[in-house]
Design a protein around this nucleic acid. Structure first.
Lengths: 190, 190, 190, 190
DNA sequence: CGTTAATCGAGACGGTACGTCTCGTCTTCAT
DNA sequence: ATGAAGACGAGACGTACCGTCTCGATTAACG
């Protein structure tokens, strides 16, 4: 009821929040994740370190927030009559979101997730799981139309698609292009 | 050519080398990669820090040496008449090598490769590329027998297989079991 | 002269003032001056930090106000016919005021006066000078009666008495007892 | 026996030690004790912070070492046939050691001793007690010659002398000159 | 009786220094 | 020359307080 969520005290500064997210993303591009520091982020953002630590556990979570916001905005969930095309469209949009800058961030986040298990949990819940569920929905609609390769479960199909995505991102540097999207579509649906 | 390669002074201690590789591997399991330090490794191995730095650039390279030795020993390259079975066998053996302990090491190495580009280069050359070539050889033999799915290149087939492997290792924790090996075999060959 | 000092708006809360003085004094005893913080005082007093900073420059001035009030109340200025006894009485009363708790506060204030010159000025004006003047008056009355040791000026006599007081307080911890009062009286008057 | 105290490893850098002592003393004069920081000392000395913390608990102990070395060198213990003159000489030399720069350090040390009880203990043992013992020896020799005022114990005489010294240093700023030395001599000996 | 102004508790803000940790290097004595 | 030991310069960590700045809520004098 009235005033239940109203707390006393100064409000969180949206300006600082944006400045920190932007500074983290910019610095990642400039110096790389290894030399990205909370001190550097705060200095670039023109805030105190405590303002970073008050709202995020560390530099990885700042990047995570920046990236998830980007993903939410730029990757639509297609839903047309052509369910095969939907899958191709989804993968193409996903790959297109992996610009050089966001790729750097994604690689850093996946790395940090391996190193800090607690962050790993947040990373999976905040970024990986929503993406899996989105692709899973597209795959399920394909299955309902009888288009999915018969020996594949939804989860395994998703593993194959995101596996290829992340493996190229992390290990080989081969491009995430329309050719890969087309190939995955054919492999999963056939 | 006098004394070709023979230098004066104390020889490198094989004992220390083994102690350092073992200490790194043990400590990784005990405290995790984030709290694994060169100082800790040296202390556990009963050596000085300098002895680690003299032979390896850092903690990641110590682990890399430990893991590559393991991989070389435990994953044979099958070559029988049944080329479909060869692929399944290779994948099964590869997955079997990912024990909990080696999985921890692999995840740490892939993480470090993202964070330190120079190490990333060594990691790809030392561990990833030989594995890709091994699998590529098996896939090529399958293609020669007309078994490979027609829209797949060798590289892409390898991407799909190792993509699924690494994605489960890094992101979902789903098992690297015979079911996955079977499923990949069917997906790639059909 | 319209309204001279009368202003609109909420009045200063006497309740908060007392709570802050009390909290500062209590916390000094509990955690010591080093870990006495304005935040802690405000929290203990149940006020906001700003309410402290609105009325005092810092934690030292809060303690100073608490101590000066105490000194004003508890150390009378004796004025009898026996001017030697007056000196002894003044010193005894002064020493008696140095309870363990007020001693802690006095030591902290003298320390802060060394570290923060601006506070030092306030400390000398507010607490030290009035005390010097009170003792100086007693000494002067003794001099008029021809009781003061001939080579002593009033200021120097005061230096000797308060010097002994503060030195024991700050440096040795030896007691401020009647024996010291008696001895100082004899030394100064002879 | 042999080599019992010989340890392996790099020796402590005497150069760094001197640089740190000097930097602390210089910075105290330049910015005052409140704005003297361990970080600043290390930066000025051209060392890492850890090199300060490895050998001293904090900035106060660095100053303490600088000051005690100074006192040991500059205040001789006079021992002539004229025991009254010896006392006057000792006090004069003591006062002369209180240059503006060392006075700043002494006031800071006495302040810190009030604020940090553990440092207070070290301060008393390292600086105050040796000084008390030195003056006590001079006073004792005067007493043996029947020169000491009869109602004074050695300890109390020392309290009076050092009390006047510290009180002027900390509270009034009145000079530590030959006049005070003469006056104290007369007061104590009579 | 509403307007205006000052204070209140609360708490976020930009800063700064803390004391710790680890890095990779350098120096020492012993092998 | 290499080994273990350990001090060194460097610099980021995450925390604690500083003193300032909003907030919405009270509380008084004034119009």
């Amino acid at each position: 009821m009235s005033g239940s969520g109203v707390r006393p005290g100064r409000r969180r500064s949206e300006e600082s929040r944006q400045a920190i997210l932007g500074a983290a993303f910019d610095l990642l591009g400039e110096v790389g994740y290894a030399r990205l520091t909370v001190e550097g982020i705060a200095a670039r953002a023109g805030t105190g370190k405590q303002t970073v630590y008050r709202w995020w556990p560390g530099k990885a979570d700042v990047l995570l927030e920046a990236v998830t916001a980007y993903a939410r905005e730029h990757i639509p969930l297609p839903e047309t009559a052509d369910r095969a095309a939907d899958l191709r469209t989804f993968l193409t949009a996903t790959f297109a979101a992996a610009t050089p800058r966001t790729s750097d961030a994604l690689r850093a986040l996946m790395a940090e997730a391996q190193i800090d298990p607690a962050f790993g949990e947040r990373f999976r819940e905040t970024l990986l799981r929503p993406r899996r569920e989105a692709l899973g929905a597209v795959v399920d609609r394909a299955r309902e139309a009888g288009l999915l390769a018969p020996h594949l479960t939804t989860d395994t199909a998703v593993d194959l698609a995101f596996g290829a995505l992340w493996y190229r991102l992390l290990a080989t540097g081969r491009p995430l292009d329309d050719e890969l999207a087309e190939l995955l579509t054919r492999t999963l649906l056939r």
